[in-house]
């Protein structure tokens, strides 16, 4: 019965592991408030006047007099109903604040990932096929420059070149509506993708070179399989698992990168929200953002884990010996 491409047992283990990891993450994020120096109630009150009445109200609202575990369960119950508390700074519900900024950051990360995939993977394949030649060296050098350029520096260079000198793209702001938004997001997305592209490029290049050196590639050539099919069906298929693992890791990197990029391009997304909330010690918002980003990263890992047995039959459990003579 364990014969499907995605065996149930494997899925259950991976999903179970992910849930455990999420639980640990949520405890850690919740503990942020308690670990912060000073009275949590005062922290939660922020700049507002800490009158005894206000403090008592906050304590009651957040169950601060209950034991840690009870507080956590209350908080978790809220989280599961998308009730993440209210922002200290604005008093608005945290979930609404995040929701309002989610779209922009989602578009930025999505576009950044697209740029990284579209440049990094074909670039990696190209350099692998032209390895140790001029093309390879040129692309690799460019990749090295991209990798070692911090996002704020790269962003400023791009703004200078493409906004101020060439006037192709706007220098800042989120733009209005579909086409304009896309136009505004090109430079930020490229900035965000720069280093990640270089990582994907190197990873793909190494994976493809490793595959090209495999005996089965020589054997495919030796029996006359057309070169194009060898590249697509044999080499790229073999390189898929390591590249996919890399893409999973890269998503986390992109999310972290939004913090800098949104500052540089004055984009009101999750990244700049995080910076503001940290600056104003807006603990509920910081908690919610940390939990949200961590969850996304963990889920990206789960997706790559689940995709691997689909690609590589060796990662599926063995078929039982007897039941095959049918």
């Amino acid at each position: 019965m364990n014969r499907g491409p995605l065996p149930l047992r494997y899925v259950l283990t991976r999903v179970g592991g992910t849930l455990v990891l999420l639980f640990v993450l949520s405890v850690a994020v919740f503990a942020l408030l308690r670990i912060a120096p000073g009275d949590p109630a005062r922290t939660l009150l922020g700049q507002r006047g800490a009158t005894p009445q206000a403090l008592a109200a906050v304590r009651a609202r957040y169950h601060l007099d209950s034991p840690f575990a009870a507080q956590y369960l209350h908080w978790l119950g809220g989280v599961l109903h998308l009730d993440l508390g209210t922002s200290i700074r604005t008093g608005a519900p945290v979930s609404a604040t995040i929701g309002g900024r989610l779209a922009l950051t989602g578009q930025l990360v999505g576009l950044g990932l697209a740029v990284a995939l579209l440049l990094g993977i074909p670039g990696g394949i190209l350099t692998a096929l032209r390895r140790y030649r001029a093309t390879d060296r040129a692309v690799q050098t460019a990749g090295l420059v991209a990798l070692s350029t911090p996002a704020f520096a790269g962003g400023l260079v791009l703004i200078y070149l493409f906004s101020l000198m060439l006037r192709w793209f706007p220098a800042y702001g989120p733009g209005q509506g579909g086409g304009d938004r896309l136009h505004h997001l090109v430079l930020p997305a490229v900035t965000l993708a720069l280093s990640v592209t270089a990582v994907l490029l190197k990873l793909t290049r190494a994976a493809v070179i490793r595959e090209l050196a495999k005996e089965h590639v020589v054997f495919a050539r030796a029996r006359g399989v057309p070169e194009r099919r060898i590249l697509v069906d044999y080499v790229l298929r073999g390189a898929l698992v390591p590249v996919l693992t890399g893409v999973g890791l890269v998503v986390a990197y992109l999310l972290a990168g939004t913090v800098l990029v949104e500052q540089v391009f004055a984009l009101p997304g999750l990244g700049s929200l995080l910076v503001e909330s940290v600056t104003y010690r807006d603990v509920p918002l910081v908690q919610a953002e940390a939990l949200f980003i961590a969850t996304l990263v963990v889920l990206a890992g789960l997706v790559t884990d689940l995709a691997q047995p689909l690609i590589d039959p060796r990662l599926r459990p063995a078929r039982t010996g007897k039941g095959n003579a049918r």
Binding site: E215, F219, A222, R223, G224, P313
Partner: peptide, 19 residues
């Protein structure tokens, strides 16, 4: 290759594509 001449190699475990 394949039609005029083909090559069979040593290690059956690496000669075929695992996927």
């Amino acid at each position: 290759r394949g039609r005029r001449v083909a090559l069979l190699m040593q290690d059956p475990f690496t000669m075929l594509h695992p996927q």
